[in-house]
């Protein structure tokens, strides 16, 4: 029972404190709207017929637009980061070849790429996807590389001794053995994807959760900003859970 409730304790306390502060009049509503006000705003955002107000009924469209950008950017990061990480973890020449370049690029904060991305790709989908995949690449790559480097060499020997060829060795021994590190890299990468999603959407795109937050700032709608932050928290958490659920289809994730 305690294990069921404990994860919700901190969110509930935060909500309680928030209610206390705003309803008790300790913080003025223009700085911190009450939970009730944010809930009303959210209901409008979710369910009101479109066109009733600027916000009405836009949630589904915004969420899908944002998830599409995160999905595309993150998928690109995984498609590049995972194989490159595994290769550089196992092959010294590959590691030497990639290391200086990747660590150099990694030192540049993602925000510094924003102006260049705007020049290259303009405002919208491509810029956001570029930023997300750039940011998510590094944790995915580093997770795979450090995992592959630390694989118990006896596992590979055992596989080879039982007659496995190189390709089967990679998929039935190397990848499963690397999984715990890969999972960590994927989770960090997905988390940072949302950070760069909002960054990409703050630049004036017309839809998406980040765009809604940015518009609300211009309009002075703190309630919308708070709602946007909460929605990103919830969606980010759900995406992480969903990804973990999918990864648990692998024995190596369930059992290691």
């Amino acid at each position: 029972m305690a294990a069921r409730l404990l994860p919700w304790l901190l969110p509930a306390c935060t909500l309680g404190l928030w209610a206390l502060l705003s309803l008790g009049g300790l913080v003025p509503a223009y700085l911190l709207p009450s939970p009730k006000q944010v809930l009303d705003t959210a209901l409008t955002y979710f369910f009101a017929p479109q066109g009733e107000s600027y916000l009405a009924g836009r949630f589904l469209g915004d969420a899908l637009a944002s998830l599409g950008r995160v999905g595309a950017g993150f998928a690109l990061a995984v498609a590049l980061g995972l194989p490159l990480g595994l290769l550089s973890g196992r092959l010294r020449p590959m590691r030497l070849f990639l290391e200086t370049f990747i660590n150099g690029v990694r030192a540049v904060p993602g925000i510094a790429w924003l102006p260049l991305a705007l020049v290259w790709f303009g405002i919208g989908f491509k810029t956001t996807v570029f930023l997300v995949s750039l940011a998510a690449f590094f944790p995915v790559y580093l997770g795979a590389a450090s995992g592959a480097m630390q694989v118990n060499p006896l596992f590979l020997r055992a596989g080879a001794m039982m007659g496995l060829g190189r390709v089967r060795l990679v998929f039935t021994v190397l990848v499963p053995a690397t999984m715990p590190h890969v999972v960590t890299g994927l989770r960090l990468g997905l988390g940072i994807s949302f950070a760069y999603l909002v960054l990409g959407e703050l630049t004036g795109v017309s839809d998406g959760l980040g765009a809604t937050i940015m518009d609300a700032r211009m309009l002075g709608r703190v309630d919308v900003i708070v709602m946007g932050i909460l929605l990103i928290a919830v969606i980010g958490r759900l995406c992480d859970s969903g990804m973990m659920w999918g990864l648990r289809l692998f024995k190596s994730v369930r059992r290691l």
């Binding site: 118990n152 006896l154 596992f155 020997r157 055992a158 001794m161 021994v173 499963p176 053995a177 999984m179 024995k251 190596s252 059992r255 290691l256």
Partner: peptide, 11 residues
């Protein structure tokens, strides 16, 4: 080959 250390695949 039977190795000295545990080399079973743990997953």
């Amino acid at each position: 080959v039977v190795f000295q250390e545990d080399a079973l695949l743990p997953w």
